[in-house]
């Protein structure tokens, strides 16, 4: 990268000569700077994204060769007597699992409101609430697997016994497994939301509150008419990012339930994994990936629209 005395980019654009001269040294250098990122993006993001769509049109059971079947994989997923119920169940499970996002949002907002005070030791509490978020999901899942142990010596079961409630099978119970996963997800994800909310809360000018207090507004009125509307964009951001992450959730499901019992915790992301890496049906897995992609794209698009709104807001 020689970038010394003569600045070629300053030359008039009609300049004739070799292409790098016409382009200008700066353009050439800039693309050199972008090259490492570009190579990685093209190889591991753009090409796979397109390849995914292509593979979804093939029937490909891994050791054997792929052959073109058009939209058969999609049709199977939607209508086949055996495939479709599994697919739709996973589809619903995905949204069931995503219920954790609004729950998380409400709890984190309440805690953030609590922590948004200048009292001694508040930093220690913020640290505490943030700790689960930075701990690896695999480690945390293992710990919760132990907390949810179905025997009487499992911690949660021992609490149930102390309260006189019969012990539960938790993760091995088709009805309870999903709520258990959601509960753990809320615990794990809370810290991130709290940090974002605290940043949002601290961005609200204190003069607004002071003015309202002089007018005799109640604490609830302060929240309803100042905090809530000003926090709106933050809430929306947390909601969409949470939904996106929830749709992609994998680790906790793999460590804690492997999609069971009876498929009660199989989400689309997990169904995709099972099809690709346990049944080696690459075509079907890719079809699920494309559907997941569309759902994620929709969410991202909503989120980008919100960015616009935020700009107008300020």
């Amino acid at each position: 990268m020689t970038t010394t005395s003569t600045d070629v980019s300053q030359l008039p654009p009609k300049q004739k000569g070799r292409w790098w001269r016409r382009w200008g040294e700066e353009t050439f250098s800039a693309y050199l700077f972008l090259l490492p990122s570009l190579v990685i993006f093209i190889t591991f993001t753009f090409f796979p994204a397109i390849y995914s769509m292509v593979v979804s049109l093939f029937r490909w059971n891994m050791p054997s060769k792929p052959f073109f079947v058009g939209f058969e994989n999609y049709i199977y997923l939607f209508t086949d007597a055996i495939e479709a119920p599994l697919f739709w169940k996973s589809f619903l499970n995905t949204f069931y699992f995503a219920l954790g996002v609004p729950i998380n949002l409400v709890i984190s907002l309440l805690i953030a409101l609590l922590l948004n005070r200048r009292l001694a030791g508040v930093g220690i509490f913020r640290t505490t609430f943030f700790l689960p978020t930075i701990t690896s999901m695999a480690a945390v899942s293992v710990v919760w697997l132990w907390l949810f142990h179905p025997a009487d010596y499992g911690l949660f079961n021992s609490w149930l016994i102390a309260m006189g409630i019969p012990i539960q099978r938790w993760l091995r119970d088709p009805v309870l497994a999903m709520p258990c996963l959601i509960g753990m997800g809320v615990w794990h994800g809370m810290g991130y939301n709290i940090i974002i909310f605290l940043a949002g809360l601290q961005a609200v000018p204190t003069t607004y509150y002071e003015a309202a207090k002089i007018d005799g507004a109640s604490p609830f009125a302060l929240f309803r008419h100042i905090t809530w509307p000003l926090l709106g964009p933050t809430l929306f951001y947390v909601l969409t990012v949470g939904m996106i992450n929830s749709l992609k959730a994998f680790t906790e499901i793999d460590v804690m339930t492997q999609g069971g019992p009876l498929g009660s915790t199989t989400t689309l992301a997990y169904l995709l994994y099972q099809n690709a890496f346990q049944f080696f049906q690459m075509g079907k897995a890719s079809a699920i990936a494309v559907l997941l992609f569309i759902m994620l794209l929709l969410l991202t698009w909503i989120q980008f629209r919100f960015v616009d709104r935020k700009v107008h807001y300020e």
Partner: peptide
Amino acid sequence: LLFLSTTMISSQVTLVPSYLI
């Protein structure tokens, strides 16, 4: 825009092809 668009393509979507690569 090209760089921006990569943030919209999640790892789950590229999982199978990336593995094949």
